[in-house]
């Protein structure tokens, strides 16, 4: 049965009609056509679907759309400035070559931004542990860890 879900996505109020069994990630990708959020697994391990919901990084493949009623969601499309300037964390990923195929990247960035808010100067170990819910098959994490360290510092410096 079709039901209505209303939420805010990237600052914009949206309302969609979906089946009750619809996942949040499906609403984001299919109803809103925000395809930067990806699906890489079906057991909530890979983290490619990570978005920010009410200020916290969550896995949108593990949340029913109905659970997000009234929520404030930000996806990777809402991260850069309106003029297209990259967010400090995005810029750090680019500078440190923290991405290759790009598929896990949006989830990595969304999680990293949330993590950096509470870790302005994280250690290598803290960063690696924060990535427990994000899998990458390309980079070996080396440059992702470097990028998040640099991005967190840049965020703390207000960049």
């Amino acid at each position: 049965m079709a039901v209505k879900v209303s939420l805010k996505v990237n600052g914009k109020s949206v309302s969609v009609e979906v089946e009750e069994r619809t996942l949040l990630v499906t609403v984001i990708r299919e109803n809103l056509r925000l395809t930067g959020t990806h699906v890489g697994c079906d057991t909530a391990q890979c983290g490619a679907c990570t978005v920010s919901m009410n200020g916290k990084a969550v896995k949108s493949c593990s949340i029913l759309a109905m659970q997000a009623e009234g929520a404030d969601v930000m996806t990777i499309e809402g991260v850069a400035k309106a003029d297209g300037t990259l967010h400090a964390m995005q810029a750090a990923f680019k500078e440190h070559h923290g991405l290759q195929c790009g598929f896990c990247t949006p989830g990595m960035v969304m999680n990293a931004i949330d993590f950096a808010k509470s870790h302005p100067n994280p250690s290598e170990q803290e960063i690696r542990e924060a990535l427990e819910g994000n899998l990458c098959r390309c980079t070996g994490y080396h440059n992702i860890v470097k990028a998040i360290g640099a991005g967190a510092k840049a965020m703390a410096a207000g960049k």
Partner: peptide, 9 residues
């Protein structure tokens, strides 16, 4: 438990 995204939910 799990990972930080899972712990948020």
């Amino acid at each position: 438990i799990g990972d930080r995204q899972v712990r948020a939910m």
